[in-house]
Design a protein around this nucleic acid. Sequence first.
RNA 1: GGCCCCUUCGUCUAGCGGUCUAGGACUCCGGCCUUUCACGCCGGCAACACGGGUUCGAGUCCCGUAGGGGUCACCA
Length: 525
Amino acid sequence: MTVRTRFAPSPTGYLHIGGVRTALFNWLLARQQGGQFILRIDDTDSERNIEAALQPILDGFRWLGIDWDEGPEVGGGHAPYFQSERLERYQSAARKLLESGHAYRDYATPQEVAEEREAAEKEKRDFVYSRRWMAETEEDCQRFEAEGRSFVVRLKMPREGTCQIDDLVRGEVRFEWSREQDHVIQRADGTCLYHLASVVDDHDFEITHVVRAVEHLSNTPRQIFIAQSLGYELPQYAHIPFVAEPGSKNKLSKRKIEQYMKNRDFKKLFDRGQAIAERVGVAVEPNSFNPVLVDFYREVGFLPDAIVNYLLLLGWSLDDKTEDFSRQQMIDLFALERVVKSAASFDPEKLLVFQQRYMNDLPVDQKVALCLPYLQRAGLVVDPADEETLTYLAAIIRAADDRVAVAGDILNFDDFFVADEALVYESKPFEKRLVKPEDAGELLAAFRESLADVDDFTTERIDAWLHQFCESKEIKIGQIIHALRVAVTGKAAGFGMFETMEILGRERTVRRIDRALEQLSQRAK
RNA sequence: GGCCCCUUCGUCUAGCGGUCUAGGACUCCGGCCUUUCACGCCGGCAACACGGGUUCGAGUCCCGUAGGGGUCACCA
């Protein structure tokens, strides 16, 4: 029997990082066993524009390299893969349950059920539906309908015995049937509810392993009841822990970013992303742009492999030291038995570490390809870029080295892409490095004059030149190099100063120093 | 509140009765390197929730307690 797993997103428009991890585990299991991974769309309830809300989710999975064998856009032998298009299947299942006595028509109004529930609560006893409006015969139905009532279909749950789940992650888990409710599976308007739909689909799609987050564990008995009543063979269940908030054990939710912002690391990650987003024209709207959602990482320039690797280790480990996994390795080595049972908090810092590692391993031309769009969208480089620009960019990226951790970080080196006349001097460093030290202007001017004599304007020669200059002036290098950096880049920090000058070239370097000196003298007036 | 799940450094985790005076990674702290920033290197702080058992021996098994979480819809 081939292994078939599934992930069933609701078309909400957003791909949640926790959902991705669940999908990843399903995907890994299927790939490892040579089986199929299926995407099914749980849209039994939503009335909104499915198309628009689904696209970002599919795009997200594709971007992450999590592909599906059956589902939207790829089809498959079990189509359709949208629950909204499978209503007849559910209704037919509901009918079967009715016929076999595992479900009944219930003519109670929602208020009547609510009253029973409240009464039970008041008396501090467990709520058990009285089944007062349960129709067992045609006569019952006619009688209730004569009263103007309509029916929903409810499960007729067993009221004794236990339900045992043999969970692949958690082992044996038992529930008392008597505590289960007579859940509604079909509404008065004939539409069906999630649990019925889910069980029917899993069966129709021949799903062998249901790998999902623990919050579904307590829903499992009713699903088992449905499946067994329908004569289905049960799938294997594996309830994995959910991804928790940074620094807490609560379930990570996209609605709580306000609160997460109080977390230092989360805030840091967000700020970094926001700075990039603002420059490339991505709307920083908390509903769509925040680190709980996959889109955030894509917009900012993360690498899919880094995210997937990080997520893999959030709730799973191979051993006590292995951290880096290629796709093939994770497929080969993944094992449900090694899934951790407790919830794991999302750690933005550690994710960044993975990102940094993966970025570092990339050849320069790939980094160029990743970074270029950011410069273009920020209006710093024309599209398409010419060969010269690409070479120039490559030199910068090489020099910047690990300072470009996410592709959008290239914008920290925007000073290389603005005209010398348009270079902006950040006020604080300008103050500290040029205005305050009284000899800064003088030294800088002298050094600038000497630059004409550097025979070869390369990193090595400039390096030697400046050291020689310092020696002749009897100053330490620190007394001039900071002023030089601010004058040439406008910033206090950056990569090697000599590399910076070589990349910029003699002419531009000199022009920038001149301009800085000009502004300095104007300030003095 | 009922039911269910979970509980090793701040975080992610290793540990499946003796090799644990508990290992690794990230963070943090100190130092080195250094023209800034980042990297890198060296070092350091830091955990078996608690209480009972079982056993010659428990982080590892059992039972309680506590804490955290999930779930209890004509939502998915």
